[in-house]
Every structure is written in C-alpha cells, then in structure tokens.
Design a protein around this nucleic acid. Structure first.
Lengths: 210, 210, 210, 210
DNA sequence: GATGAATGAGCGTTCATTCAT
DNA sequence: AATGAATGAACGCTCATTCAT
C-alpha cells in the first residue's frame, strides 16, 4: 500500500479530477471521491495540491495546455487566414471528440464559482491567442488579402467568439443541445458541413467590404 | 405575520435569488440567506419551490423571461435582417447595463452543476429564438435580400453565437476580461464601436457570396 | 425531534461542554461528541456559538461566573482581611467539591492552546479580584490592622497565588497528586487542617514586620 | 545519509520539540514539522520515541531536568531556609529569562491533555523537591531557626506553591498578564523588588508565631 | 539503519431541508 | 398558513503513524 506514486498515477489523478470537475462542476466534485476513484489516499492529493481550488486550477491548466497544443499545431504553418481558420475548426472538432472534458473545463471557469480567478485566468488563457489572432488579421489586412476597413481587434474577437462557441457546442451538454436545436439532430455527426458553412460565413465577413 | 405573499414579495424573492445566484453561483448560494435577505421565512420559500434546484430554475426562468421580452421587442418591427441585428445588438447592450445578473444566470446553466437540466432547458430557451432566426434568414434568402448559397440553420446558429457571446462579454466576469483583452480596456464604454464593427462583420457574412 | 430548545437544554450543553473540555482539554474535545452527549444536533451548537473557540470561551465564562459568585459572597461582609481569607479558603473548598470542572476550566486557559486569548482573558478575569485584594490590603495597611512595610500589590499577588494554587490543588489531576505528595494522601479530606495552616501562614505573613 | 544520530542531534530534536510544544501546546504541535525543523526524518523521530505522547514526555523530562539542575545548585550550600529561598527565587528568575519554554512545558502537564500521566508525572517530578523542602523546614523547626507551631508539609506546600506560581508568572502568557495586572506593567523588569517582597512575605510567614 | 511518501481516521463546519409551533 | 429553530449528512482538510525503499 505504501508505494511511491508514479508519474502515471499523478496523471491519473488529474484525469480523474478533470472528469469529475467536468461532469459535476467545481463545487459538487468531492475531493475525497476523486482520491478514491484515482486509487490514492486523500493525503496524497493534498501533498501535491494545496487545496481544492489549487487542484481545480491544476486540472484546468492541464486541460488548457492540451487544447493549446492542438491549436498551436493548427496554427503552425504559413498559411492564409482562412486556411488557418479551417485548420482551427478541424482541430476543435478533433479536440471535442478526443477530450470533451477539457473543453468543459474551459467553459467551467466562465461560470460563477470561478469568479475569483476570472481576471488572472483570462489574462493567462486569452492573452496569447488574442495576440496571435489580432496580428494575423492585421497582417492580412496590410497585405491586402482581406478587407481593409475593419478593426483587427474587434474582428479577432468575433472570430474567436465563433470558435469558442464551436468548442462548447461540441462538448458542453447545454451548448450541444442548443447546437442540435439550431442545426438539426445530426449536426454533431456532420463535421464537414460545419467546416464548410462556417468558412463560408468567415470568408465573406473577412473579405468583402460592405 | 400570517400574511399571504403578495406578488411583489414573490418578485423580490426571485430578484434576491438572482442576485445571489449570479454573484456566487448555484452551489455557493445559501438558500437560508436568500430567504433572510428577501425578508421571508425559509418555510415560505420551500412552500413555493420544491427545493433549491427548483428555486434556481425559477430564478433562471424569470431572468430569461425578461431577457426574452427585450429581445422580442427588438424583433417586433418588419425590418430587414441587418436592421434587426442592429436592434438586437443594442438591446443586448441595454440588457447588460440594466440586468447584468440575468445574463449571468443564462451563462450559469451552461456550467456543470446544471447538467441535469441541459436538455429540457435548451429546448425551452433556444427553440423559439432559433426558429425565429432561421425563418428570418430563410425568408431573407428567399426574397434575395441576402446571399442564396447558405444553410439558414447554420447561419442562424453563427449569428446567435455571436450575439450570445456578446451578452456574456458584457456581463460575466471572465468573458468581460476576455472582451477587454481582445478589444481594449475601454471597449465596454464604446457601445457604438461594437455595434458598428459587428454589423460590418455580419453584413458581409450574410450578403456576399464568396 | 424538532422541539425548541429549552433554557435547561442550553445549560445542559454548557455543562456537557465544560465536562468534556475539563477532562480532555480544548483540542481533544470533539464538538460533535459534545452535541451528541447533550442530546442536540451539531447545528444547534453552531447556532448558539460561532465556532469551537467561541463555545469554549462560553463554557469558560460560565464556569468563572459561578466561581466568581461564590467568591463574591465570601467577600461580601465587612470583615477583617484574615476573616475574609478564611471565608475565601472555605469557599474554594466548597467550589472544588461542587464544581471541580469549573476550576479545571480556569486552569485550562493558562495552558498553551489558549495563548491567543491570554491577554484578553487575563484582563477580564483577574482585573476585578486583583483590585479588590489590593484595595483591601491597602486599607488594612492604612488602618493599622496589618503591617505597614509592604507593597499591597505584591502581597495581593502572593495571596491570590496561594488561593489559586489551592483551587487547582483541589480540582486538577496533576495538582491534586502534587497536593497529596506534599501534604499526605488524606489531605483532600481534611479541609479544616488546610484552613488552619494556610491561615497561620497568611496571618504571620501579613501581620509581623520582619 | 546513513549516519547515526549524534547526541547533539538528539538534543536539537528535543529543543525543537520543546520550542514547538511550549508555543503551541501538545495537540497543536505537528510532529512532522518538528522533524523537519530539526533536520531529521519523521522515521527517526519514531525510532527514538514510540509516539507523539512519548516524545512530548521526553521533551518534558528534558525541560524538568534542566530546571531541576538549576534548582539543585541553588539549594546546594548549607544555608538557612530564607537564604535558600532567596537563592531559589533568583534561580527562578534566571531560568525564566534563559529557558522560558521549559517553564511552559511544566505548566503544560497540568492541563487537560496530559491527564493520563498526571499521577506518574507528579510522583516523578514533585517527590524529590517536596521531600527536600519538607526536610529543610522540619530541620529549621527543630533547630529553632523558624517558628515551631507549623506543619512542615503544609508550609512546604505553601512555599512551593508560591515559587511555582512565580515560575509560571515569569514564563506563561496568561500568568504573565496576570502578574502585570496585579503588580504593574513593569514588574517583569524589576526582579529585585520581587525578591525583596516575596522574602518579606516568607520571612514573616515562617518566623513569627501568630 | 534512515527516509519521507503515502495513508486514512477523524474533526470542524456548512447548509438544504423538515416540521412543531 | 407562515415561521424559523432544529437537524445531520456531507465535505474539506490535517497530521499521527506506517513501511517500502
């Protein structure tokens, strides 16, 4: 029983935590239950994490790290804005399929109980991607590949809003139901259609001067 | 104090509940405190609502009813899609200023603790507006006032996504921080700019065939 | 089960608390056990007392109030210093027989865990009696009924030290054992001897100029 | 690090333990913290001491050993009772200045949590000094240097009470506050006055027949 | 022998819910 | 009908103790 924790075990704890937090939320998740489900003692959890909040934040950061890695890969090449957008949409679809809980964690921090960390987390999570988006759009605007009459920051915001909603719509219960109500019960299985229509939407929005 | 509860009192209870739920979240809100703050007994609260969840749902429905009324008014005339959109955006800005808690309640249901009701609530909340949006877009498509190569349901979804994100971005802590990171610290005070840019975005998206 | 708490019940809770705190100390006393032993729920304890510390202080104050009442009665008349002393010694013996736990509570606050309140409690508990003793001694010194070469405050201190030790020696386990070691196993049953010898000690100390 | 514990190390552990126990009390002292602060492993602590209680007792015995050594030295000469008393008082003042924690440890055993060992400890700690005091007083009584109408055991008890209270009054938070309330805020800095007045008190008590 | 990570019983406290008044 | 005192399950967290390394 007194075996040292392997790194795998530590990962298992995080995954269990993420699963629990994602399905029940921060407050309804029982730390003792997480420990039990992970096959470790309560004490070990408190050895690695100062308290429940800290553990939640660790789970959150773990989730976002994975999400970010996928996003970063999608953004790596030297493509045009809309090609990037396509890759992002597909990456989101892939993430949602593989790690639905990670996306739920992301949504979780936007809700009431995480208020306390709103500012810190927003800075930590949104700063980098917002900068990247804004720069891309500004560059595209400068080189004439998109329209020239827009505010890059606002358009970056709208773009990210659409992508973020897509993330949630593929992963979070409420958003998924809403997705089906808007786009039909089969929409979750028709990734190609979503890619196609969203790109249509984005392309016009970014390209044509009204 | 054997007085029957007036409708005002009932409303006060709901408002107190909304204020608490919006600032602390479902789980961290203390029902007994809500009763005390509303000036009623705990017993009366349990007479009108079966349990905490039921009371939360009542607060939620009350919030959404108000939000919906504002939206409905914005949609009442016989205008074109983009004029409607403008009115919606302004209505959202007004709502956010007047009833930030209502928007927070809306966001709250998307989080983990409300999982159980996701399906029911989504149906209840999103059905009507999705239908309205879809029909409008379909009509506009039919009468040629917007492009003809789109799926009305998908585009209704994107439109609503943008509007919903706007709602949250004006009201919920995390989203508000994110809004500022993307668009600058003063964006919350420059409503006109948001209207203008979002309309620019939407107009192109809906009008030009790519 | 949902019967209102009578005043007796509240008193029973205090007595149970005192009994537990006196026998186990602040830290080893389990609040839930106190509740159970008192026949009330945990919640009721927390309704009346903010937390464990507050409950401990309430038990302490209750104990001291009773002790003080007995002492005050012993001090009421218009007697000479040594007659008062005799009455005090007898009052202490009586208290120890009737409420041993109260004296233990008094000793408890002198120990480590109550550090935090040392200053406040000392002021609250010792101020009045110290003033009374000092005044009595000063008066007796002035009217020539005791020696005139002493510092009333110091002698009041020595007097109270002897009485306090007597309290503890009749009530607290360790002090009681020590009492027996010094004065014989039967000393606890020979109240008269203690009165006589302590008075002998005090009379000379207070009367004769060395 | 397979080094055997040196005696110094063992002493350091005891000193750390005493410091912790004296400032926080038995129950609020964390054994693991003591180990860490001493620079040893928890395991080694448990190798030398069966459990927390045993370690506490060891700390206690170490403290008392030191205190006793100082007292014994003060008692070594062939002086008269009151000269010895003076030396004792001064030894107590010195001890309090040099090892306040040791005195606190002494006071600690009188409190609730040490109940279990009250009898054993009292025997172990008080037997020798009580015998010494009693014999001295009996001898002094026999050789006529003090009054002849007293019970040596009782007077030894009173004497020790006064000295013990002095120990605590110089070292333990509550007793120190009480000391100041009785004798003024500056009493802790005026050792000479305490010596003088207490000797005055004792001399009369022991010398004059009432 | 020495280590210190792991264990898990146990405690203080909260608060949704009940029901005697 | 309205009240709100009473209830007690449940949770976050600590730390004395164990034992694999």
């Amino acid at each position: 029983m007194y075996k040292k924790l392997t790194e795998e075990k530590l990962n298992e704890i995080l995954e269990t935590g993420i699963a629990e937090f994602a399905s029940k939320g921060l407050d309804r998740t029982n730390i003792n239950t997480v420990a039990k489900k992970s096959g470790v003692s309560i004490g070990v959890l408190y050895k690695y994490y100062e308290n429940k909040d800290a553990f939640f934040l660790a789970c959150l950061r773990h989730s976002l790290m994975v999400l970010r890695r996928v996003i970063r890969e999608a953004m790596s090449g030297e493509e045009k804005l809309l090609d990037r957008a396509e890759k992002l949409i597909r990456a989101i679809q892939q993430c949602a399929a593989e790690h639905p809980s990670y996306n739920i964690m992301y949504n979780e921090i936007t809700a009431g109980a995480s208020n306390k960390y709103a500012q810190t987390l927003a800075k930590e999570i949104e700063s980098i991607s917002s900068e990247v988006y804004i720069r891309f759009i500004a560059d595209a605007k400068a080189d004439g590949s998109i329209r020239d009459d827009i505010d890059p920051r606002m358009f970056a915001f709208f773009l990210d809003n659409l992508l973020m909603m897509l993330q949630f719509s593929y992963s979070c219960d409420y958003y998924r139901e809403r997705f089906k109500i808007f786009c039909g019960d089969d929409i979750l299985k028709d990734d190609e259609k979503v890619v196609e229509e969203l790109l249509k939407f984005l392309k016009s929005a970014f390209t044509y001067k009204s």
